[in-house]
Amino acid sequence: MSGRSEADAAAKHAKWLENGVALRAFFYIFGTHVFAGFVWLLFYLGQHAQK
């Protein structure tokens, strides 16, 4: 009986880790795009600034 509950706990932990990795990857990709957009905006504004 105990072996089965340990296996269930291990499977739940593995699924939690997979979800954590997917969530981190999403935020890293999203954050990188936000940062790239900000840099693009700086270049755009710099090109169109009154000189």
Rank of each mutant, 00 (worst) to 15 (best):
M1Y: 11
M1S: 09
S2R: 06
G3M: 05
S5P: 07
A7Y: 05
D8V: 02
A9M: 02
A11P: 01
K12P: 07
K12D: 11
A14L: 00
K15D: 13
K15R: 09
K15F: 15
W16F: 14
L17I: 06
L17H: 06
G20D: 03
V21E: 13
V21F: 09
A22S: 13
A22V: 06
L23G: 09
L23Y: 07
A25H: 09
A25F: 09
F26T: 04
F27V: 08
Y28G: 11
Y28P: 07
Y28V: 13
I29D: 14
F30G: 04
F30A: 07
T32S: 14
T32K: 01
T32G: 15
V34T: 03
V34F: 04
V34M: 02
F35E: 09
A36L: 05
A36E: 03
A36G: 05
G37Y: 00
G37I: 01
G37S: 02
F38E: 08
L41D: 14
L41N: 14
L41G: 15
L42R: 00
L42Q: 05
L42F: 08
Y44V: 04
Y44P: 02
L45G: 02
L45K: 00
G46A: 03
G46T: 03
H48L: 08
A49M: 09
A49W: 10
A49S: 12
Q50S: 11
Q50W: 06
Q50E: 10
Q50F: 11
K51P: 15
